[in-house]
Design a protein around this nucleic acid. Structure first.
Lengths: 189, 189, 189, 189
DNA sequence: GATGAATGAGCTTTCATTCAT
DNA sequence: GATGAATGAAAGCTCATTCAT
């Protein structure tokens, strides 16, 4: 094997895609713009990704993996509210660290281009699931479908991050409030 | 006098766009598919809409106008929870009546193709604003930014509609639960 | 017969075509722009002219007729130089009166859209022919093909008008010079 | 390294454009006809020329460069009439070698699609300028604007080439006559 | 006759992907 | 593996012409 596929280059392309897709809406940026932004030739993109769709799916996985990595120090032994708060904060952190991601994730999810395998929940979502289950126990939502609850938490989280993005000066307050609202809501007291 | 521009045809094109855009993600459906679905010639689309972007913006306004029309019997004199529930139910109604709309609205909002004027709140959102303001009064979120609250309500609503779309048999329950969670959350008791 | 085709309208369309074609090069202006400029409906243009090509040919004839009308007082009894000068001045007059025409004539001639019948010489050209024939008599170009001579006179005339258009302040001089050069040239002494 | 952009292909496209534009008037030939005539794919045309307008401008420069190249053996030390005759003959040569060019040049000039930079005089025109200046010295046109003179020479030249194109059997005579007329004319004796 | 909405062929240009170098 | 020229199938949009009103 002469030159091995470089992982650096792979990452460079993914990061370039993140940036470039965020600039033009709708995943409509041409692959040539992505390869240019990544500093590689147009053809090279296709030695790392079979097609644009493949790139898009890998990008989605890449972003989700980053979310999961952010949960490294998950306080597994803490109580449910603390654990939920941890996930909440990491999600917000990530969304604010790369605000393009917020829109991009939405676009990816609604693009109809993601393959089935990419529709499995991330570690973060799994944690939300179990935490939420615990939280509602004994409350008036004890018998509610947990999946619905999780969708709600995620929605709330993205709404909060969106608000903070528009009003950065209210970050601390919003982060807190958003969390309290959903916690309150779920506990049903 | 010649044939007048027919409003039926205009609506037919908008409805066709709704359907066709929902099928392929990212507003990427070709205008030719839309005109075909609307039963008009390719060129005709452009006598009703200056460009694809114009069509997209008009579509957004069209959808929003429909939401507003659904609020015709808004119980203006009822108490805040009742009023919020009314808006909540009408939103869910609409999203379920045309489930394509759920994805489409998200796509439209994140497309970067909407003009400024289309970013003003609908009547429904305005009502949410005033109702929410009233709801938090006296609670622990009294001083929270109302806009954030409204974003949360909308997020909750869309999450709930999404869940119902996937689990139609749980509609009544989910509709109720979703509302209770956000109401609980906002009232802070 | 209810309403007769109005000659005013016909002329209005031709004049509009002259203006509009001059603005965009290459006869590429859409018929809709012409009808708009003429103050008639798009379809109306086609009740006066069978097709765009027909309009173009009629426009050419219209312009040529105007040239011919300018020769109304042709000094038929004067000597050859005087007569050539008369034609020369009227040509220059016309080209300066509507400078768009200079470019337009060139475009029409090189468009490949003129029908055969429109390739016959105008009255002005006919006069040039006979005058030129007389002028070269006895000179060193006695046996030259008159058609070539006439092409030269026309070329000279258009070159002169073009120059005057760019340097209006030198009109009188240029008009005179241009004529002297071609007269000199033809007489061969 | 990849395949380098081939200059052959570039030239092939330009030559194809020359042919195809000449067939249909008004630069109205579709780019697809040009690429087909050049034996390349439709898209390839656009890797060599940014747009149709760019192609048109490059074509103009291409043709002008050819004129200039034809003057390689310009007899710089000869007297003015000899030098003018050299330029005259080379112009006629070129116009006859590719008769499409005669119409095409006219179309290009009157198209309104040429950029400013392409309006500078060619080497041939520059030579005409200086030669003409010398020719009129001492004659009755001593104080005439040289630019006008040059426009005249060019016009005369194109008229002559046009005539020869229609009457090839009179080439030698016409070439001579045309030149004599303009020389006579300029010298004013 | 006048109007302008309707039509659809045709245009320029873009872009994912291939492949010669 | 890397490169970028080559490809050709779309895409969005224009426009001469027709025809219902």
């Amino acid at each position: 094997m002469s030159r091995p596929k470089s992982d650096d280059k792979r990452i460079a392309i993914l990061e370039a895609a993140l940036r470039v897709f965020a600039e033009r809406g709708n995943l409509s940026a041409p692959t040539s713009a992505i390869s240019k932004a990544a500093g590689v030739a147009e053809g090279t993109l296709f030695t790392y990704f079979k097609s644009k769709d493949d790139l898009i799916n890998e990008l989605y996985r890449h972003l989700r993996a980053r979310f999961d990595r952010a949960l490294a120090e998950y306080p597994i032994k803490a109580d449910a509210p603390t654990r939920l708060r941890y996930v909440w904060d990491r999600f917000i952190d990530r969304l604010l660290a790369q605000p393009e991601m917020l829109t991009l994730l939405v676009q990816l999810r609604s693009s109809g281009r993601l393959v089935k395998e990419n529709e499995v929940p991330t570690v973060g979502i799994m944690e939300m699931l179990s935490t939420t289950r615990e939280l509602v126990k004994g409350g008036k939502f004890e018998n509610a479908p947990v999946e619905l609850m999780v969708l709600m938490v995620r929605g709330q989280c993205e709404a909060t991050a969106g608000y903070i993005h528009a009003h950065p000066e209210e970050e601390a307050l919003s982060r807190e409030l958003g969390f309290q609202v959903i916690l309150n809501g779920l506990q049903g007291r």
